[in-house]
């Protein structure tokens, strides 16, 4: 019997939850730092776009490098999970729509989605290349 099979899932193991919490705190502080320093550009929250796209690239890279479970929980689920945010992205878009800035809302929506997608693919590719 392999130990993996008898091990409970990560969300039920206190050490795993602790690693994610520690990483999440670091990622959140880093996101706060970036969004505090970088101002909006013509009403567009470019700092949030940059954070989310950069985080998507780094998570792709990390995933392709396939580190051990502890590093994956600390850096992937924790740091990069806490660094990037979906709630701010959704609410920023909603606020732009509420202010009748539809073009800006659409630009923000698509810039983040397309940028994040491309960044994830690039990160995965870069990580695979690095491993070889």
């Amino acid at each position: 019997m392999s130990p993996e099979r008898t091990r409970p899932p990560s969300h039920l193991r206190p050490v795993a939850v602790g690693l994610v919490a520690a990483g999440g705190a670091v990622g959140t502080l880093a996101r706060y730092g970036v969004t505090s320093i970088v101002p909006t550009l013509g009403g567009l929250p470019v700092a949030v776009v940059a954070v989310n796209v950069a985080g998507a690239f780094l998570l792709g890279l990390l995933t392709a490098l396939a580190p051990g479970e502890r590093l994956r929980l600390l850096l992937g689920t924790g740091v990069l999970g806490g660094f990037t945010t979906y709630s701010t992205y959704a609410v920023d878009t909603q606020l732009l729509v509420a202010r009748h800035e539809s073009a800006l809302a659409l630009a923000y929506l698509l810039m983040t989605l397309a940028g994040g997608f491309a960044a994830s693919v690039l990160g995965l590719a870069a990580g695979r290349r690095w491993r070889r």
Partner: peptide, 9 residues
């Protein structure tokens, strides 16, 4: 909520 939600994954 920023830490709870995530875009990267």
């Amino acid at each position: 909520l920023g830490g709870y939600t995530t875009f990267s994954s």
